[in-house]
Simulated scan of single mutants.
Amino acid sequence: MTLRMTLIASTAIVLAGAAGAETMKIGITQNNVGVDSYQTTYESAFIAAAGENSDVDAVVLDAGGDVARQIAQIEDLIQQEVDAIIIWPTNGEAVIPAVRKAHQAGIPVVVTNSNIAEAGFDFVKSFSGPDNITQGARSAEIMCDKFKDMGIEGEAQVVHITGQPGYTTAIERAKGFEDRMPEVCPDVSIVDTQPGDWNREKSQQVMEAFLVKYDDIDGVYSGDDNMGVGALNAAKAAGREGIIFVGATNFAVGYEAMAAGDYWGSIYQSPVDDAEAALKTATDILEGKELPFLNYFDTPKITQDNMGDYTKPVF
């Protein structure tokens, strides 16, 4: 097939497959492609998957982390009368009115990667992505198991670096971790929680403040490995050794830090699987297939002990 790709005002990529009566026009508005390599890889994988499907014409948009821009993009896709809209929400609450408009226009909405708030579920056809609460819970289990191996499960103190406030993935991973830790290691204390905004440099600054405030830190849980490696860098610079670092969404930098013996564990999640699952969910809906509302793909635990079973992430 012939693939046409056009960059419009640096915000939209239009992919046109072979024209035909059955062509599905699918628009996607992403959260913030430039913020980390996971989202960059996701976009590339989505474009590749759309380009390989001759039944799909895709309009690929990026909100750049701006809620107002994302709302405007959804409204523009409604005006274009696309057949389906995929949204990676910048904010799970704020986008609900725009998602409602798409629903009222008869356009099925698929939420990808990070769900919107529950108040908007009636306006969404399906969610495609990871189970972030389970990811947080699995991270707690990884950390607890390591503390037990070290014999410090009765006294360990943990600090927690979360993602962007208001972002559903950050909220759910935090909830999963903080709910599960008391169940598996009831004597472990989570002494402080601060946002790192998915940013390595900010997370390093957050960890620097933690290190000044707390003489005893046994573990650090971060909502993704990008933030976790920022925290690790702060600990290294301060000469603080023996801290167990656990994240979620295993980035290449996290994998490398695990290989070096500096970073203990994470959750393995593929942005390629994520993107391909979102597109398939949208096309399945348009083809009339029945899907579960929560359409999860698996995200297993990865630690220094089993990392040889997994390939290094490309993001």
Rank of each mutant, 00 (worst) to 15 (best):
L7Q: 11
I8A: 06
I8D: 08
T11D: 13
A12P: 00
A12E: 14
L15F: 05
A16Q: 15
A16Y: 03
A19C: 10
A21Y: 00
T23E: 08
I26E: 09
I28W: 05
I28S: 02
Q30D: 04
Q30G: 03
Q30R: 07
S37K: 14
T41H: 11
Y42G: 02
S44E: 14
A45K: 07
F46Y: 15
I47A: 14
A48I: 12
S54G: 09
D55R: 12
D55L: 12
V60W: 01
A63W: 00
G65Q: 00
D66Q: 09
D66K: 09
I71C: 04
A72K: 05
Q73I: 04
Q73F: 02
D76L: 04
L77W: 01
L77D: 00
Q80G: 06
E81C: 02
E81H: 12
V82D: 04
I86R: 06
I87F: 01
T90V: 13
E93T: 15
V95S: 07
V95E: 13
V95D: 05
V95A: 10
R100C: 07
K101V: 00
K101R: 11
Q104G: 03
G106T: 11
I107H: 03
P108V: 05
N113P: 09
N113K: 04
N113L: 00
I116E: 12
A119I: 08
G120A: 14
G120I: 15
F121T: 12
F121P: 05
F123C: 02
F123Y: 15
D131P: 02
N132W: 10
A137R: 14
R138H: 10
S139P: 04
E141S: 05
I142C: 02
M143A: 07
D149H: 05
E153M: 14
G154L: 09
G154Q: 15
Q157S: 05
Q157V: 02
Q157N: 09
Q157F: 03
V159H: 11
I161F: 10
Q164W: 02
P165C: 06
P165T: 03
G166Y: 11
E172G: 00
R173I: 06
R173P: 05
F177W: 07
R180G: 01
M181Y: 03
D187I: 01
P195V: 13
W198A: 05
K202V: 08
S203P: 12
M207L: 08
K213S: 05
I217N: 03
G219W: 06
V220A: 11
N226H: 10
M227Y: 07
A231P: 08
L232I: 11
A234D: 13
A235P: 07
A238V: 03
E241F: 06
M258C: 12
A259K: 15
G261D: 14
G261K: 12
G265F: 00
I267T: 07
Y268R: 10
Q269M: 13
V272L: 01
D273C: 00
D274P: 11
A275G: 11
E276D: 02
A278M: 08
A278P: 12
L279C: 06
K280V: 06
G288N: 12
L291S: 06
F297T: 08
T299N: 12
T299M: 09
T299V: 13
I302S: 08
Q304M: 15
G308A: 14
F315D: 06
F315T: 01
